[in-house]
Design a protein around this nucleic acid. Sequence first.
RNA 1: GAGCCGUUAGCUCAGCUAGGUAGAGCGUCAGACUUUUAAUCUGAGGGUCGCAGGUUCGAUCCCUGCACGGCUCACCA
Length: 484
Amino acid sequence: MSSDVISRYKKAKQIIESGKDAFVSKYDCKNTVGEVIELYSHLKPGESKQESISICGRIIAIRKHGKLTFADIRDQTGDIQLYLDKKRIGDIYDFFDLLDIGDWISIEGYPIRTARGEFSIMVDKVALLTKSLRPLPEKWHGLKDKEVRYRYRYLDLISNPKVKETFTKRSKIINLIRQFLISEGFMEFETPMLQSIPGGATAKPFKTHHDTLDMDLFLRIAPELYLKRLIIGGYEKVFELNRNFRNEGISYRHNPEFTMLEVYQAFVDYREMMNLTQKIILYIMDNLVEDKKISYLENEIDINPPWREMTVLNSIEKFAGVKLSFEMTRNKVSKIADEIGVNFDEKLGVGGIINRIFEKKVENKIIQPTFITDYPKEVSPLAREHSKNPNLTERFELFIGGIEIANAFSELTDPLDQRIRFEQQLCTEEIETEMDEDFIRALEYGMPPTGGLGIGVDRLVMIMTDSASIRDVILFPHMRSKKE
RNA sequence: GAGCCGUUAGCUCAGCUAGGUAGAGCGUCAGACUUUUAAUCUGAGGGUCGCAGGUUCGAUCCCUGCACGGCUCACCA
């Protein structure tokens, strides 16, 4: 045990032995720091106001000057300086000597602006609410060790104001998405996280087992197939904003559990989903930032509409410099892929290879908000075939800052076509799965024309908080367990 | 899964190229101090140098393995 911790335990013991509680159950604070600053910060240097206020907060700095002590405390609304004068408060002053940075306290006093101009509380009473037994990271350099920051995120939140800002923003973004969709007449539903056939995307699922039913279950990789059942059931505007789980690689934009928004609306197509995507993001921007320009990593991003729109093929031509078409032979396309150094699975057809080229050569180059359209049917098993080209689907993805943010399509409502697509998928898929007969059955009862949209919420938060890694927008990213 | 890098005091970091059992700043502890805000001044304490082996008279330093982490790649519609 370090000397810092020993010294804090000693102080706690001393406090308890003096008959005080070191971990009290409650305290009714009259004021918050933010409130007090708002009400009284107009005071001029040397002025005070004889009005009693009480605040609860954590001590974040102490500056002792003999018979005078300055300390800073923080609550959720801000920081404020305490001014303690031994001559005024005697025993209470001595008690404060036993307190450390990190302790939670309540104080009573009155507002004053010091001669030096710092707005403060002249303290009359101090009570300890919770004794902190471990020293917080040093304030000047903060906490930098990424392992410690991720493992003990609460320390990160205390030490690094920017981190706290990021997660505050995240909370607001989630709230704004719900607010917007509900105001547009959508209803939020919760569909199964435990699924017997993991569907709605192609990804390796986490597997688990239900003992009573004695059946294997999978954590969902997407809610899609259940939300569509709600459309079949007669709800016309639905969404779900919650976690998905994919048992795959971890990267700056992949986390095994991540937050996804899925929206479905009856009687509209992917074009309307495009409008909706733009409206959701602009609504968030309007409520979070002053103008519609954000900087992400090294780039300035202009969110002002209209956003660029480009087909998969055009974007490949622009960013990879090769001209492709879906009418080319597989041989020709695979040769071009080889030439530009894109490797691919041998099972892929023309559409699959083109999609692979897009992913490898184009995606991360699309910085400004851009809708990419005309995705190959081969890689879109749940999307409706394009009305003008049987090789394509009515689908788009939105890219911002080189990251895929959204994916949407006119949903495939034809159960016969859906069965064929699933069968094709089962042939090429390496992941062991089976035909989702129950979903086909649901389609057979009739799904109205429907537009569907998925937004990767973590990624959207990354863009809006200038975060380079998804781990910087997920509070408690997964880590291997470490024996202390 | 692969490659590269990292792990030294509570925190942020030096030290290792020359192998001889470790340093700084902040924090902590003791003392001084009635206007500080990275307070200041004086003094003190604080380390299994990630873990385990190997080489060596001697290893924080060189070698091997392991653990954990970071970054990049691979995987991933």
